[in-house]
Structures are given as C-alpha cells and as structure tokens.
Design a protein around this nucleic acid. Structure first.
Length: 259
DNA sequence: ATGGTGGTCGCACCA
C-alpha cells in the first residue's frame, strides 16, 4: 500500500495537480490538509472517476482535512473540533480526521500553526498536541499512522536557517518537546531513514523565492506505530511537486507499506 | 514580500 500526506493549500485550486500526483505515484491513500473546501465544494467527480472514496471534515477558510482512498475508507472519525476560548463558533475547526484504509488506521492531522509565541494560538497549539498525544496512546497497538502538517520543525537540520527562527514558533523547546513526546510513546518517524542527506524539507514559503533557493522547513511527517513502522519499505518527499506555477507551498510525503 | 479565500471586484485575514 502506498500512503501519502500533503498540505494542498486549497483542494479546489489544486485539483489538477492532485489528480496528476495520484496517477504519477500510484497513490492508494492520500491524507490532505488545508483543503479549504466545504464538503459540497469537494470536486469529487474527478477523484471518484479515478476510483477514490473521499472523507472530509472541518472547514473554516484555511482549515479542513480529508482522506481519499481507493483501498477502502471505514470508520471515519472526526476529532479535535473545539478551539476553547476563541468564542466565535466559526473558529470551531476539525483538524483531524481518521479512517481505516485496508486495515491501517490513518489520521490526517493539521496541527495548529501557533502564529507567534505570545499569541493565544500558541498555547492552543500545545494544548491541542497534548490532547492528541493522550488519544494516540490508545492507537499504538494496531498499524496506525499520524500524518500531516505538524507545524513543528523538530531538529535544527529541519530549518534552513535557525538564526531566522530565534523568536519564531515551530522550533521552540515546548513545541519540539511536544513532538518528541510522540516518539517517546513509540511512534516512529518512518520517512527520515529513507531520505538520507540534507534535502529533507517539505515546505517552502511562497515568497522570497524560498523554493528556488531551497530555503525550507521540514514540518510534514508520517509517524507510525510499531506495527505500522515495521511494514514500511520506503519513503520519499516529492519535492518536485513544489516547482512551477500553481504549486502548494508544501510538498507531498509518500510512504510504502508491505501488505 | 506570495498565494488562497471570502464577499465583493479592492481588501482583510490567514498561512
């Protein structure tokens, strides 16, 4: 089974690239983030004609997660809808959707950005991660993958220039500790062993020619439970998908799983 | 600085 995760930054504006990506890499299951599409806006026709089922949740302008699968899509569950303390019901967002695809539990995650360290969204990000961790403890026995945009660069090597992030989110010790906690619980970064060398970025900002100059971040991850990780036979970052006009600011991450 | 979205076709908000 071939599983991928991709922050598409609008499914509607990217549908052509999404379909081309699915065909180019023969993807079985694709977890999407930042779909920016209501359920009634999802361009299902193209994906369905390619043989995929779609499950989507959570939409408020920039949010929304989805899983599309051609190997079954069962027990769909939406998680982490609340954004406590933010009052406006429009900010109640679904940042996680889970589904079982061919026996593998896949969670498409869009971890809160956090904005700035002093912003309430930063505390919300850490709280959200703590709640996800608590829930994920119970998911470790089976083959489970926590995939998506974690909005955390866990290591200095995941950042093009640490000096530029001295006062930024994504690299603070509490965020990195929150990420490390999943590893401590037995989840494994299944991609890094298959992407040797320094070219590990998954995200390049749109401006300042960050992609052309390869000044990016590694913030998109596939963390697998032990039963999942033991089945991984390969992985890669499709960095070429970031090239050209009409690209998302994130590249897809692809993982191969033995049957 | 760039790009997507919404609610209007210029601009605020978000990444």
């Amino acid at each position: 089974m071939r599983l991928a995760t991709w922050n598409v930054n609008s499914l509607r504006s990217r549908i052509g690239r999404v379909e081309a990506f699915l065909e180019r890499h023969d993807i079985d299951v694709l977890a999407l983030q930042e779909t920016k599409a209501r359920e009634d806006q999802l361009p299902l026709m193209g994906l369905q004609s390619l043989g995929y089922e779609v499950a989507a949740a959570g939409y408020h302008q920039w949010n929304g997660v989805a899983i599309i699968s051609r190997v079954g899509l069962e027990d769909v569950q939406i998680g982490f809808e609340e954004m406590p303390g933010f009052g406006d019901p429009l900010t109640a967002e679904a940042r996680a959707i889970g589904a079982t695809c061919a026996g593998v539990r896949v969670w498409s995650l869009y971890v809160p950005n956090g904005r700035k360290v002093e912003d309430p969204h930063y505390a919300y990000k850490l709280d959200w991660l703590a709640r996800l961790r608590a829930a994920a403890l119970d998911w470790r026995e089976g083959p489970t993958a926590l995939v998506g945009d974690w909005n955390i660069a866990p290591l200095d090597e995941d950042v093009f220039d640490m000096a530029q992030f001295k006062t930024s989110t994504h690299v603070t010790p509490p965020e990195r500790a929150a990420f490390q906690a999943f590893l401590d619980d037995g989840y494994v970064d299944v991609v890094r062993p298959h992407t040797p060398g320094p070219d590990v970025y998954t995200y390049w900002d749109y401006y300042r020619q960050r992609y052309e100059r390869n000044r990016g971040l590694r913030i998109d991850f596939v963390l697998g439970s032990a039963p999942f990780a033991s089945r991984v036979t390969g992985a890669f970052i499709d960095r070429d998908e970031r090239a050209g006009t009409g690209a998302s600011d994130h590249a897809p991450v692809v993982v191969d799983l033995a049957d």
